[in-house]
Design a protein around this nucleic acid. Structure first.
Length: 451
RNA sequence: CGGGGCAUGGCGCAGUCUGGUAGCGCACCUGGUUUGGGACCAGGGGGUCGCAAGUUCGAAUCUUGCUGCCCCGACCA
C-alpha cells in the first residue's frame, strides 16, 4: 500500500476528550473517529487491526469445534419476553419501535436468539454437542461510556453458545472454550490470565474472565507468578480429548488468580510472598456456564437416549475484538506511539523513502516494495514528500513491527536501514541482508503466531 | 443515575471576569529555499464563537432554558 493512496488521518495532538493512552493513540493514529458518545467509526488502520484480531478469534473458535453463524443486530422483543429478560434488562437495552409499532431492540447479547435457532432445528441428543458462534456488533446503552472503544456503547463481540445434553458434557464444552481462549490470546501476542469470575445466581466454579496484563489496566489483579511460565497448548491440541482438555484447564486454574472483586485475602496469604503478583489487567474475554437458564423457559429441549426430553445445558463465551484492539495498545506502546504484536499489526513493514522525488531513493524503494510484496509482506510505503522527521514520527506512531529506511546517505554506501519498532534497534544492511532478516522474522512469526 | 467540568476554523488553545463585531500554534493552499528525527521565508483560504430566547445602541462575552461531550463515583465485554 502506498501511503499517498491510503487514508491515515493522523493528529499531532490528541483531542481533549481522550483520557487513556489507547484512546489517545487510536485517535492520533487515525484508527477511529468518534461519532457520538461511545460510538465510533473505524478508519482503515483501525479496521485492519480489528479484522486481524477477529480472524485469529475465528480460527481458534473453528479449531475448537465451534461453528460460525451470523445473527442480526436488531431483535424482536418477543424472544426476550419469553426468557423474562425484556423487563429485567433495564435501560442498558436500546429499545426501538418499528413502523408497525412492534417492539424491537438492538441486541446487547444473543442468548435468546441462538436458543431460538437451536430449538427450531435441533431435536436429538445425537446432534450434540453443538457450539454456535458469531462475530457481530452489540449495543449496550451504558450510562457512562468512556475510554474510547474500550468501553463503548457499540462494540464488536464474538459470542459463542454451547449446547449439551447434560452437565458433564456441558462442562467439557466449557473447557474446550477455555483452552481455545488461551490459544487465542497467545496468538494475539499478549499474556492473558484466566481468573475466577462471579457466577451470579447459578453458582459453581464455571465462570472465568480473561485479563490482559497492562500497567494501565482498569482492574487490580492478584495472581501467582506461576502464570508467567505456564505453557499455552499448541495448534495441534486435540479438542476431542476431553481428559487432555480438562487437564490443561486444571493447570491453568490451580494457582491463585483473582480480580479485586473476587479477591480473598485469606487464600491469597497462602501464596508464597515471593510468588505474589499484584498487577493490573483489562478484561477481554468472559466465559460462563449457565445450564438451563434459557433452554428451560424457552423450551429448547432435546430427546435423550432414554427417550425423554430435557432442556439443553448451555454456556456462553465472549471476546470483544473492538475492545481487544484498545487493550493491545494499553499493553504495547511507548512515548512515541503504538507497538503492535506481529500477529495483528496493520502492516508488517513501513518502507520509508527519505527523499521522495529523488531518482535513486524512488527507484530503490520501488524495487524493495515489489520484492517484499512478492515475498508475502504487507508493506506500507511512505512515498509522500514529507520530511524525514515526520515520516519517522508517523511510522513510530502507527507501530508497525519494522521500518525499512531508504535515504541517499545510505545508498551511497549501498545500504538501507532496518529499524525494529519494539526494541528500537536499527542496523544498516544491504538490500539482500535486510530482506533476509525480514524473511527470517516472517517465518518465525508464522511459526509462533500463525496457528 | 448522583457530583463536577467543558463547548470559539480539522486538532490544541487564548479572548468571557471588565460587552464594541474574533485571534494564536499546528494542519491546509500558492510560490520559493530546504531535505536522515515533526524545516524556513513570503502570500493565502477557512469560524452564523453548541442551539434558542432575553437584556442592550451593540453579545463569543451578561441572563434564562435546552443540547452535546468529558471527568469522578455506582454499573459493565
Amino acid at each position: 500500500m502506498l501511503l499517498s493512496k491510503y487514508f491515515i488521518p493522523v493528529l499531532k495532538e490528541a483531542p481533549r476528550e481522550a483520557e487513556i493512552v489507547s484512546h489517545k493513540l487510536m485517535l492520533r493514529a487515525g484508527m477511529i473517529k468518534q461519532q457520538s458518545a461511545g460510538i465510533y467509526s473505524w478508519l482503515p488502520l483501525g479496521l485492519k487491526v480489528m479484522r486481524k484480531v477477529e480472524q485469529i478469534v475465528r480460527e481458534e473458535q473453528d479449531r475448537a469445534g465451534a461453528v460460525e453463524i451470523l445473527m442480526p443486530t436488531i431483535q424482536s422483543a418477543d424472544l426476550w419476553r419469553e426468557s423474562g429478560r425484556y423487563e429485567d434488562y433495564g435501560k442498558e437495552m436500546l429499545r426501538i419501535t418499528d413502523r408497525h409499532e412492534r417492539d424491537m431492540l438492538f441486541g446487547p447479547t444473543n442468548e435468546e436468539m441462538v436458543t431460538d435457532i437451536f430449538r427450531t432445528h435441533v431435536r436429538s441428543y445425537k446432534d450434540l454437542p453443538l457450539n454456535l458462534y458469531h462475530i457481530q456488533w452489540k449495543f449496550r446503552d451504558e450510562v457512562r461510556p468512556r475510554f474510547g472503544v474500550m468501553r463503548g456503547r457499540e462494540f464488536l463481540m464474538k459470542d459463542a453458545y454451547s449446547f449439551d445434553l447434560d452437565e458433564a458434557s456441558s462442562r467439557a464444552a466449557y473447557y474446550r472454550m477455555f483452552v481455545s481462549y488461551l490459544r487465542t490470546f497467545d496468538r494475539l501476542g499478549v499474556k492473558a490470565i484466566p481468573m475466577r469470575a462471579d457466577t451470579g445466581p447459578i453458582g459453581g466454579d464455571l465462570s472465568h474472565e480473561f485479563l490482559i496484563l497492562a500497567d494501565t489496566g482498569e482492574s487490580e489483579v492478584f495472581c501467582h507468578a506461576d502464570y508467567m511460565k505456564l505453557d499455552v497448548p499448541g495448534a495441534g491440541v486435540d479438542y476431542d480429548d476431553d481428559g487432555l482438555i480438562q487437564s490443561i484447564v486444571e493447570d491453568w486454574t490451580k494457582s491463585y488468580a483473582r480480580t479485586d472483586e473476587m479477591h480473598e485475602e485469606a487464600l491469597w496469604s497462602n501464596v508464597d510472598a515471593a510468588q505474589q503478583m499484584n498487577a493490573r489487567g483489562i478484561e477481554v474475554g468472559h466465559i460462563f456456564h449457565f445450564g438451563q437458564k434459557y433452554s428451560e423457559p424457552m423450551g429448547a429441549k432435546v430427546t435423550g437416549p432414554d427417550g425423554k426430553d430435557v432442556p439443553v445445558y448451555m454456556g456462553s463465551y465472549g471476546i470483544g475484538p473492538s475492545r481487544v484492539v484498545a487493550a493491545l495498545i494499553e499493553a504495547g506502546h511507548d512515548d512515541n506511539g503504538i507497538i503492535w504484536p506481529a500477529s495483528v499489526a496493520p502492516f508488517d513493514v513501513g518502507l520509508i523513502n527519505l527523499r521522495s522525488g529523488d531518482e535513486r531513493t524512488d527507484g530503490a524503494c520501488a524495487s524493495l516494495y515489489d520484492q517484499l510484496t512478492n515475498a508475502g509482506f504487507d508493506v506500507l510505503y511512505d512515498d509522500t514528500d514529507s520530511r524525514a522527521g515526520g515520516k519517522f514520527a508517523l511510522a513510530d506512531l502507527i507501530g508497525l513491527p519494522w521500518q525499512l529506511i531508504i535515504g541517499p546517505r545510505g545508498l551511497d554506501n549501498g545500504e538501507v536501514e532496518l529499524k525494529n519498532r519494539s526494541t528500537g534497534e536499527r542496523e544498516s544492511l544491504n538490500n539482500e541482508a535486510a530482506i533476509n532478516k525480514l524473511m527470517t522474522w516472517q517465518s518465525e512469526t508464522k511459526a509462533r503466531f500463525g496457528g
